[in-house]
Simulated assay, not measured.
Amino acid sequence: MKKNLHEANRLSWNAATRAHNSHKGDQARFLREGGSTLFPEELELLGDLRGRSLLHLQCNSGQDTLSLAARGALVTGVDISDEAISFARRLSADSGLPGTFERADVYDWLASAPPARYDLVFSSYGAISWLSDLGPWAEGISRVLEPGGRFVLVEFHPVLWLFDEKLRLAFPYSGGQHVPEASGVSDYVARSGENLVSWGYEEGVRDFQNPHPSHCFQWGLADLLNPLLRHGLALERLEEYCYSNGCKVLEGMREAPGHRFLLPEGIPDLPLMFGLSARRTG
């Protein structure tokens, strides 16, 4: 694990999170009135959530976590960003949706949490690339799941991360190779607009420049799946999707119904997201 790089990412996410939430208006009201930030893909994979204990790893500011709570899950969210967790706690109080939120590096949290506690562990949308070592991550997920419990992940496809924003091949596919980014975590919320803020996008912070660099890691599907299998999780379902939900990742992407983005006109389909469900067997 590269904990020094995790710490750099914490600072970068703190700065970016303030910019992101500046565009999102009254999120507590949106949630109180029955709004949800979830997409059909994760809901289908998660299934019935009523009364299920759910751990949301890398939960960011808690919008998805509390949307899961609104569907009956008993939620705990963990994220490395101080700003994100502080916001999530306020959002829980202001929306009236219960959730426990803890600020920690996911590796530290998984290592210290009680075993066999959760029916579901969930993560989504831009989480895996921030992990510097998938072995202890997979081991920790297996450890905190109840026997028969499931890990559900909906994530941007590693094929997508081969390209820069102009759709030029620029990065390695796999192996956890380190990709530093001097400009840090971007204001992708501003770039995506109402597709991420369906209840009313606000201009908020303009021309955000992150003062803190960030560090990502390039993982292929085999890099991800093999540690899960080694640590007692059985793959039950794997899906690939030729669109991205909510987030305009590449220049020239076309908007589609359901707040989805497609590749630019004339570009052959590529998988832009994937989803999986894996069950703890022991």
Results as ranks from 00 to 15, higher is better:
Leu224Asp: 00
Leu228Gln: 01
Pro227Arg: 01
Val249Arg: 11
Glu251Thr: 04
Cys242Val: 13
Leu235Ala: 09
Val249Asn: 05
Leu221Gln: 01
Leu228Tyr: 03
Leu233Trp: 04
Arg230Val: 03
Asn226Ala: 11
Leu228Ala: 10
Cys216Gln: 12
Lys248Cys: 10
Gly232Lys: 04
Gln218Met: 13
Cys216Leu: 07
Asn245Ala: 11
Tyr243Gln: 10
Leu229Trp: 07
Cys247Pro: 00
Glu251Gln: 07
Cys247Phe: 02
Glu240Gln: 14
Cys216Val: 08
Leu238Tyr: 15
Glu236Ile: 03
Leu224Cys: 09
Gly220Asp: 02
Ala222Val: 13
Tyr243Thr: 11
Cys242Leu: 06
His231Arg: 10
Leu233Ser: 04
Tyr243Met: 05
Cys247Lys: 02
Asn226Asp: 06
Lys248Met: 07
Gly220Pro: 06
Leu224Arg: 06
Cys242Lys: 05
Glu239Val: 15
His231Lys: 05
Gly252Glu: 07
Arg230Lys: 12
Glu236Phe: 11
Leu225Val: 15
Arg237Pro: 10
Leu228Val: 06
Gln218Glu: 03
Gln218Gly: 02
Leu228Asp: 00
Met253Asp: 04
Glu255His: 07
Ala256His: 09
Val249Ile: 08
Leu221Ile: 13
Leu238Cys: 09
Gly246His: 02
Ala256Val: 06
Leu221Tyr: 00
Ala234Asp: 08
Gly252Asn: 06
Leu233Lys: 07
Ser244Ala: 14
Met253Gly: 08
Arg254Asp: 04
Leu238Pro: 09
Cys216Glu: 08
Phe217Pro: 00
Leu250Met: 09
Trp219Glu: 00
Glu236Cys: 08
Ala256Glu: 15
Trp219Val: 04
Leu221Lys: 02
Tyr243Val: 12
Glu251Phe: 01
Leu225Asp: 01
Asn245Ser: 11
Ala256Tyr: 04
Phe217Trp: 01
Ser244Lys: 05
Ala256Asn: 07
Gly246Phe: 01
Phe217Met: 00
Gly252Lys: 09
Leu225Gln: 10
Gly220Ser: 08
Gln218Ser: 13
Glu240Tyr: 11
Met253Arg: 05
Gly220Asn: 08
Val249Gln: 12
Cys216Ala: 11
Lys248Ala: 13
Gly232Asn: 07
Leu221Phe: 00
Leu238Gln: 10
Tyr241Glu: 03
Leu228Gly: 03
Cys247Glu: 10
Ser244His: 03
Glu240Phe: 14
His231Trp: 10
Gln218Lys: 14
Cys247Asp: 03
Arg237Trp: 11
Leu233His: 01
Cys242Trp: 05
Cys247Gln: 01
Cys247His: 09
Trp219Gln: 02
Leu224Gly: 02
Gly246Asp: 00
Glu236Met: 09
His231Gly: 06
Glu236Asn: 05
Ser244Arg: 06
Arg230Asn: 09
Glu239Ile: 12
Ala222Met: 06
Asn245Leu: 10
Leu229Arg: 12
Leu225His: 05
Glu255Asn: 02
Glu240His: 13
Met253Gln: 15
His231Phe: 14
Leu233Ala: 05
Ala256Met: 14
Glu255Ser: 13
Glu251Pro: 00
Leu225Lys: 03
Gly252Arg: 03
Glu240Cys: 14
Asn245Thr: 11
Tyr241Asn: 01
Cys242Pro: 14
Ala234Arg: 12
Glu236Tyr: 08
Glu236Thr: 03
Met253Tyr: 10
Arg230Met: 05
Glu255Asp: 08
Asn226Met: 11
Leu235Met: 12
Asn245Cys: 09
Met253Lys: 03
